[in-house]
Design a protein around this nucleic acid. Structure first.
Lengths: 346, 346
DNA sequence: GTCTCAAATGACAATGTTGTCAATTTGTGG
DNA sequence: CCACAAATTGACAACATTGTCATTTGAGAC
């Protein structure tokens, strides 16, 4: 492959002049620039990024690691899809700024992550974004002042982090149901060992309280035993119990869109009409799923894309030397309520 | 960051000796190696990949571009998820071989892809894998002998490519239904402007013929007008027509698991039992979806992971200089039938 | 002790680029 | 046409590494 000397020779200038042209430096005569650019094109010359990085100690590379670090159980449902939207968003940021993204997923141990990090550092990445599958606490093995941003996760050492605002998301869903006239609400959540679960339950209860609901009309189920991906029958049992009460809930919030979908299928089987008899709100805004439901599901977004964008912005800020004011707190990205057809106005 | 001179100084050896240690060259005394390794550890030294690449002209970097190149309509359903499994598989290969993956997705024009490719070449990637969202023909703007492998797509210039064997996948599904005693089959496919559709229809018809079915018992629907993600009613109309025939099909093949899911919901509504009255086979093995169905769907895998693995193997082969025998034909990766609960034995 | 040969190590150039600073060219006013 | 400043260009070192080839070290044989 042609190098800068070849270009200089063909253009009849010094290598330094070629360097100036490819770096868009000022004070180059137009005629000179034209000669050099012609030579570059003719030789199909590509500046050697490694050599540039050597001199300028700027590689233009951002590293990204995805996967699960903590010992938390791996959820086969959530896994992957979220990380993908995150990766896409980060990649967009890189492309806009002319950076390039190196990526590695580590399904493995902390030691494996450290190994990846070493590899990244060999390539002189300017910073790293670590993205978790789902909202969780992690322990990322990194040195003190290495530019690192956690996405969809956080740690105990005030590493800059960007997470979804689960409490806010569940709260707006709850407030919306109350606004629509519902007074007896049920919340069927994810397993309570997940970070998101605790936050969302708080959001639900806060929404109920501030909406002025009678305590006895607030129902929630969220136990270690109940896992939303265990056989269909488990969810049915819970729904049966709630529907046969003297004063059954008029609206259900579910921990994710899949649970909502399963529940709606069961409601239909039982002859319960949606949204006339029962209103339903999901969580995640899994468009792929919702697009194929008979009743388009009202739900709350999980803003993975925005998390990715913000994580990149945050890393970029660190690299630019801008130290953010409240960088010690994870940035919380708000969810949005998507109103579709499964909530009725009473 | 420490460099090789610092390490050499601390260890009391020459830089060349340090170089030998980090490259695992033979003929280094154990005591020397130990001294050097101690110094490396103490200084937290990471060899500069850019500088190494300069001398050795081996960067250890593989580039990957994902996205849609052809002008074909972008399918919001298929998009993304498949690419993700592909990316994961390629990344695994890289990690195993100590290579690192640079990634960029280009939702854009051919010119944008060319721009990305230039950027990759600046970083001296050793080769590139281009992965499409779904099985399609593309036109990838690359120079003659640049190591490139197409995944989930192919071009007209015999660039090495790895694609799913759609005909084989639909054929094994069809043969399975016939083995189970079904004699009247329906096939509701994807829009016929997709490469996969044409291949799968061929597979279906071949399976029917070789299974000895009566021509009049073979039904297929696949038109430009019918798109599987248009409103629910379209699919229902087709199903209604087929179910009310004098001799309705006893088994349905669908173009993807989502269509199968929607159809099964409609069957249930109509009081048609699955699999007792009607058998159903999907396509894609979308586990996330299937996990939440009442009747676990029998389906055919779309072997994205294997395509990714093979694409990497193929690229690795090119880089090792092994020229494959029939490299001018796209490698076809076979699908697998996943037997679950939606096909009955008659 | 010293000779021989292989093993181990080092000196130095080369890789492709940019930073520094000096040299050259160009333009402007007298 | 000249002096002088500004604009433009170039020579050379430096960056962090590896390849080449020379040198040193050490072990075994005489």
């Amino acid at each position: 492959m042609a190098n800068i000397h070849d270009v200089a020779q063909l253009a009849g200038v010094s290598i330094k002049t070629v360097s100036r042209v490819i770096n868009n430096e000022p004070s180059i005569k137009d005629t000179t620039r034209a000669k050099v650019e012609a030579a570059i094109k003719k030789l199909d010359y590509r500046p050697h990024a490694g050599a540039r990085a050597m001199r300028s100690s700027k590689s233009g590379i951002i590293g990204m690691i995805t996967g699960v670090l903590s010992a938390a159980t791996h959820d086969p449902l959530e896994s992957g899809l979220s990380a993908m939207h995150l990766v896409r968003a980060v990649q967009e940021g890189c492309r806009r700024d002319g950076r390039i993204l190196m990526i590695a997923d580590s399904p493995g141990s902390s030691e494996e992550v450290a190994e990846l990090l070493r590899k990244f550092q060999s390539h002189r990445v300017e910073g790293v974004i670590y993205a978790a599958d789902y909202h969780q606490q992690v322990l990322f093995p990194h040195s003190e002042n290495f530019p690192l941003v956690l996405a969809n996760c956080f740690d105990a050492m005030q590493t800059p982090a960007v997470v979804p605002d689960d409490a806010q998301g569940q709260e707006i869903a709850t407030r919306y149901l109350i606004e629509q006239g519902h007074r007896r609400l049920a919340y069927i959540g994810l397993p309570d060992n997940m970070v998101a679960s605790r936050l969302r339950l708080n959001g639900f209860l806060k929404g109920c309280r501030e909406g002025g609901l009678d305590d006895r009309a607030i129902i929630w189920r969220q136990t270690k035993e109940f896992e939303p991906w265990t056989p269909f029958a488990d969810l049915q049992a819970i729904l049966d119990e709630l529907l046969t009460r003297a004063e059954p809930p008029t609206a259900f919030c579910f921990g994710n869109d899949l649970m909502a979908m399963r529940a709606m299928a069961y409601f239909k089987e039982k002859g319960v009409r949606i949204p006339d008899d029962i209103s339903v709100i999901g969580y995640d805004n899994d468009e792929m799923l919702i697009r194929h439901m008979e009743h388009a599901l009202t739900t709350v977004t999980l803003p993975y894309r925005e998390i990715g964008l913000e994580a990149y912005r945050c890393l970029d800020g660190i690299l630019q030397g801008k130290h953010d004011a409240n960088a010690d707190q994870p940035r919380r990205i708000e969810s949005e309520l998507i109103r579709r057809d499964t909530v009725s106005h009473i």
